[in-house]
């Protein structure tokens, strides 16, 4: 503190003598140094007071009292300043933990898109925060079948990610029941209902594409409806399915639905982040999606997914309000 006082004294005296901008610039740099050394505002006033007494010994008693008054005022500021600093430090720690958690989530919930001989599959899943509340799970055997689960946790960030790990675990332990979409949802529903907080709900679309029979059976737990493009009729139909969100009631039943898939048909499964348009209330997102798909149906499934993302992101002025996930399956 004594050393700082000596420096401060010299700077102040220079300024009183020359009153140049250079002196003030030096003062600014000195302040930076003070902040780095965690010198409290009240200490700065204390230094100023002492220096004033030294360089202007004729300073009146009243002036010294005025400095004491200012010191009192600055103590309160100093307290707030230090609280702020400790919060900043804490935030840096949280950010670090968050980054590690996000990395773990990425590894844990990594989706591998199956590469199959007769079916073209594409996927885009982009979180708006560090952690993704959407999750896609595939299970496939070449020339036989491909299963896809598209899930969305209602809620974001860390709690959503933790819940998602549970969903993934549930999906991985399905074993031989993967062919029955309603049954899959019933099992996952029980897992979530039992083990996850009451405020946490998950929507899921589960589809089973039988490549040999060329049928797509599906069930939905409160999830955004999927789309089916029929190449033969050149039209879209909505793959709607009734069913309660996962995690609400223990014994929920889900309906079984099935469509036939023909050559060049496209199935589009998405989360509500794709269809929700914040700035366009009366806007029909599904019209936009079907128009984009129809126009570009000859692109690969992955190219279509990327195109959808780019166009919708642009429509939303690059400010998506929710995690964005779309899966496209082309025969």
């Amino acid at each position: 503190m004594k050393q700082l006082e000596t420096q401060y004294k010299k700077m102040l005296m220079d300024y009183i003598t020359y009153q140049s901008e250079k002196n003030l610039y030096i003062a600014q740099n000195f302040t930076r140094q003070l902040i780095q050394k965690n010198v409290a505002p009240e200490d700065v006033v204390g230094i100023h007071k002492n220096v004033m007494k030294e360089i202007l010994p004729q300073t009146s008693n009243e002036e010294q009292h005025a400095y004491d008054f200012l010191i009192e005022v600055m103590v309160q500021y100093g307290m707030t300043h230090r609280a702020h600093q400790s919060l900043l430090q804490k935030q840096a720690e949280y950010d670090m933990e968050m980054k590690i958690a996000a990395d773990i989530q990425k590894t844990l919930l990594k989706t591998i898109v199956p590469q199959l001989a007769n079916v073209d599959i594409g996927m885009v899943s982009i979180p708006i925060r560090k952690m993704n509340g959407d999750y896609v799970h595939f299970l496939a055997e070449d020339k036989k079948y491909v299963c896809v689960a598209v899930t969305d946790v209602i809620g974001k960030g860390v709690p959503a990610a933790l819940c998602m790990s549970m969903v993934k675990y549930g999906l991985e332990t399905l074993e031989y029941t993967y062919k029955e979409p309603p049954y899959v949802l019933e099992i996952i529903n029980r897992v979530i209902e039992k083990s996850v907080d009451d405020s946490m709900f998950v929507s899921m679309f589960y589809g089973y594409f039988d490549i040999q029979k060329s049928t797509f059976s599906y069930a939905s737990a409160g999830h955004e409806p999927a789309l089916h493009y029929s190449a033969k009729n050149n039209q879209f139909s909505t793959l709607e399915a009734k069913g309660l969100l996962l995690g609400v009631l223990p014994d929920t039943k889900y309906a079984f639905n099935e469509v036939t898939i023909e050559e060049n048909d496209i199935i589009i499964i998405m989360t509500d982040g794709v269809t929700e348009f914040r700035f366009h209330d009366d806007f029909n997102a599904r019209d936009l999606i079907t128009t984009i798909i129809e126009k570009n149906k000859f692109l690969s499934a992955q190219q279509l997914c990327t195109l959808l993302y780019e166009q919708i992101e642009q429509m939303q002025d690059f400010k998506l309000s929710d995690d964005f996930t779309v899966v496209i399956i082309k025969k």
């Binding site: 009240e42 200490d43 007071k49 103590v75």
Partner: peptide, 11 residues
């Protein structure tokens, strides 16, 4: 205690 510390203790 100096003035600054007095102010701190009082606060």
């Amino acid at each position: 205690f100096n003035t600054v510390d007095q102010a701190r203790i009082t606060t």
